[in-house]
């Protein structure tokens, strides 16, 4: 009995390792639905595939953990695609219409410029935010030093624990 309990305890103590990569059940379900939807709305899928190429590139090019940049580009890229998706649906939603739209230079210019705009947003906002945070950090460091000086002024150098002004 005791041995069984010990084994159970050992088992329960083992850290649960999360499986990395792959999809879960919900993910798989979503992927199957997406494939089915893609097959059902093949012209739209084709339009989006070529239109969203910058986003795909961004997702694959960016380092792990930098998905925020890809997300930024994707958002604007998608916004660029949306008018042409509506145009496709408005003109019959077939392969010919889809190819017409895709072969139009203006279409690709608009979609890819939107994606570039997304990249620009990422560059500008990231620069602004990091600069702001850096300055905030510097100010905080100065505030810490000032507070420490006040504390030392009030309690003596012995406060830091490195110097003992009692001796």
């Amino acid at each position: 009995m005791a041995d069984k309990k010990e084994k159970k305890a050992k088992k329960s103590k083992k850290p649960k390792v999360k499986k990395k990569g792959g999809f879960g059940f919900k993910g798989r379900l979503f992927f199957i639905a997406l494939v089915l939807m893609s097959i059902t709305f093949l012209p739209t899928t084709m339009l989006l595939f070529f239109g969203m190429l910058p986003s795909l590139v961004a997702f694959f090019v960016n380092a792990r953990g930098m998905s925020a940049r890809a997300s930024t580009i994707s958002a604007m890229n998608l916004a660029g695609c949306v008018p042409f998706v509506f145009k496709l649906w408005d003109t019959g939603n077939d392969f010919e219409a889809s190819i017409d739209i895709l072969t139009n230079t203006q279409t690709l210019m608009v979609i890819y410029t939107a994606a570039a705009f997304g990249y620009m947003i990422d560059w500008v906002v990231t620069g602004l935010v990091s600069s702001y945070m850096y300055q905030k950090g510097v100010l905080r460091m100065k505030a810490i030093r000032k507070r420490q000086e006040v504390l030392v002024g009030l309690w003596g150098e012995g406060l830091s624990g490195t110097r003992n002004d009692k001796s």
Partner: peptide
């Protein structure tokens, strides 16, 4: 320093702008 936060903020801004554009298109 602050780049990750900057990217996150950019994503938020981007999605906001994209949403507005999409709404206008719709």
């Amino acid at each position: 320093y602050g780049v990750v936060s900057g990217h996150d903020a950019a994503a938020v801004v981007s999605w906001l702008a994209a949403t507005i554009i999409t709404v206008i298109v719709i």
